[in-house]
Nucleic acid binder design. Structure first.
Length: 456
RNA sequence: GUGGUUGUAGCUCAGCUGGUUAGAGCGCUGGAUUGUGGUUCCAGAGGUCGCCGGUUCGAACCCGGUCUUCCACCCCA
């Protein structure tokens, strides 16, 4: 026998049940995206390398899957690159395409290329797979789906308010309570770095701060010292390590710290706007939290930063994230267009819903009625009913073989089919059908029209 | 990319310091039961012990490599 086939690390096949459940999630996300006024687009699964490279930082570049050129590509490679075993330089000689790493950069590219045909503000959503050459772990794959909604061409903070509401609406409809929407602002982080005289060390400063819940206060201070921040500087941000109280109280504390930083004050003001308005409008399923340690995606975010954490007790990284980029399309030559957006991590949301048992029973119900097969003549009689059921929009099927009843019944059980129709010689003689409810075992012998009425 | 971890039947897992023919539960197939499933009882099928190589009289077990899983770091959905 041939060697057993396999699939690449970090990729998965999906069974019918898994696809059905995934469709349930994306269906809800899609519906809410549309309800909030977003329009769908799609972009290619691979882009020109220079569209992607350099957009996600050095770490990001490392994780981009690159596509080998066709043909005798080595012949065109620069001899000195080959000679020196210079992988990075070689890579650009022999590869000019790469797999999509996220949906935001391709979207920025899309906006620039289609700038003459789109009206700003442009609100689009996009649900497609992305690829990262990461080392897989639970909830971390090398191929996974992102569900993004972004707006370009509006500086209004009402967009941020809308996105928080959108997050909340989706998680509420999924029945996922207790998610935490964490919000921060790049300007606040920049302000903090500024008041401690470390404006040039913003990234090091925030990366260290981001680890607070993981390595604790001492760990963060140690890392900051290693990165060259002074003792006095760290002393000035001491209040951050004991940040408590309501969101309003936290904002008050932040404001007190940032009084001397114009940029920092602007960030606090923006956070206040978002929080006060979202609070006044109300949330259904999520907790809102000011989190000054949140520092995701700092390579590009310039204003709001969002991250959604799974409910307490579920070991899962973030299930969503987003933020604002003041100059989203600038990298592709279209200046002064601001963008803000959020993303849902489909694969992680799936794992969370599965762990919490939140998929409705009805989600996996595909066929509603199974007609049992007792033989050729009976099958034809069943087919007549089948057509009527399908005309009424009821998912129905006939068991293809005149197998033992036990086998046919078991098939219905395993497929989670709620109704079975028995149509044998008795029913044919009386022009009736016997409808059996598989969950409680009750059955009725009915005329065709009665049966149809009962199921619609 | 760094360090570690896991892999035995379709699934979840036993398998002693290396020693005949590798086990269990669940599931699957058939029967008890020719038009009534889920419960019960009986029988049966199913494994190159992830893969390649090494040590040994002898390897599921020891060693090396490789793939995969999960974990920590990095980063992230």
């Amino acid at each position: 026998m041939a060697k057993k086939p396999g699939i690449p690390k970090g990729t998965r096949d999906f069974t019918p049940e898994e696809v059905t459940k995934r469709n349930y999630i994306t269906g809800i996300i899609k519906t809410q995206f549309q309800r909030y006024g977003f329009q769908p687009i799609e972009t290619p699964s691979f882009e020109n390398s220079d569209t992607l490279l350099g957009k996600y930082g050095d770490e990001g570049d490392r994780l981009i899957f690159r596509i080998l050129n066709s043909g005798d590509f080595l012949r065109k490679a620069k001899p000195d690159h080959l000679e020196n075993r210079d992988s990075n330089a070689m890579a650009s000689d022999i590869s000019e395409k790469a797999l999509r790493y996220d949906l935001t950069v391709p979207f920025a590219r899309y906006v620039v290329m289609h700038q003459n045909e789109i009206d700003l503000p442009f609100k689009r959503y996009q649900i497609q797979p992305v690829w990262r050459a990461d080392r897989p772990q639970k909830g971390r794959f090398r191929e996974f789906y992102q569900c993004d909604a972004d707006v370009v061409g509006s500086n209004s903070l009402w967009q941020e308010v809308e996105f928080v509401k959108l997050y909340d609406a989706v998680f509420h409809e999924l029945g996922l309570k207790g998610v935490t929407i964490k919000i921060n602002n790049r300007k606040v982080l920049a302000g903090l770095a500024e008041i401690i005289g470390a404006a040039d060390k913003l990234i090091d400063f925030t990366v260290a701060l981001d680890k607070l819940d993981k390595i604790g206060e001492e760990g963060v201070k140690k890392e900051m010292l290693e990165k060259g921040l002074s003792e006095q500087a760290i002393e000035r941000i001491q209040p951050l390590f004991a940040f408590e109280g309501s969101n309003e109280e936290r904002l008050d504390q932040l404001e007190a710290m940032l009084k001397t930083s114009e940029e920092g004050m602007k960030g606090v003001e923006e956070l206040r706007f978002i929080f006060s308005n979202v609070s006044a409008l109300g949330v259904l399923a999520a907790n809102l939290e000011v989190d000054v340690t949140l520092a995701r995606g700092l390579n590009y975010y310039t204003g709001a930063i969002f991250e959604v954490g799974a409910p307490e007790g579920v070991a899962m990284g973030s299930i969503g994230g987003g933020g604002r980029y003041d100059d989203l399309t600038g990298i592709f030559g279209l200046k002064g267009v601001s963008g803000v957006g959020i993303s849902f991590g489909l694969d992680r949301i799936y794992l969370v819903l599965e762990e919490l048992g939140l998929f409705p029973e009805s989600v996996t119900e595909n066929t509603r009625v199974l007609i049992l097969n007792f033989g050729e003549a009976e099958a034809f009689y069943g087919m007549e009913l089948l057509q009527q059921l399908r005309n009424k929009g009821i998912n129905a099927e006939l068991y293809p073989d005149a197998a033992k009843m036990k086998k046919q019944m078991n098939y219905a059980n395993k497929r989670n089919i709620p109704y079975v129709v028995l149509a044998g010689t008795q029913e044919m003689n009386d022009a009736t059908y016997t409808l059996k409810n598989m969950s409680n075992g009750e059955q009725d012998t009915l005329k065709q029209q009665e049966l149809l009425d009962k199921l619609t």
